[in-house]
Amino acid sequence: MTTPEPVQAVKQRRDRALASLVGAVPYAQFLGIYFERHGDELTAILPHDDKLIGNPLLPAIHGGVIASFLEVAAIIELSWATVWPDLEAGRITPEEMAQNLPRLPKTIDFTVDFLRSGLPRDGYARARVNRSGRRYASVHVEAWQDNRARLFAQATGHFLMPQTGRDATDH
């Protein structure tokens, strides 16, 4: 029986892999989006910034910021869910990942429901991959601010999965 990997080593390995994935998306950095991780569960966080405002009178966060936040959360979740098995099985290391980042899924369509106006404070989002096939994936995202049960936006998107050399010809 092998000795279990020390918990700190496990966390560092996962966090480094996630950081390289998120750090490679300039637009996520531009918006200030970062991710918290509990096991494989990700929460996207959008810290408030005055530049994110769309309606200065209310004030409210710009709808385009909300749409962007949800799409970033969906793409990172989908990419994370894709690399997770390889990462956990040791087939790739975070260092290898950082050197050769996985191609990101491409958005086919994205539909956003604006349920409430976004208040000038931090937002949170979690995405769920409802269907992930070899070529397509369907992802649902929920976003909230103060209360988890009071969503301020939700979205569903369809994505084209990156094709690896192995299955690129396997339709």
Binding site: G64, A67, S68, V112
Partner: peptide, 12 residues
């Protein structure tokens, strides 16, 4: 360009 930025442009 990120899809989200395109969304922001279309929404505006």
């Amino acid at each position: 360009i990120h899809g989200g930025a395109v969304s922001a442009l279309m929404d505006t």
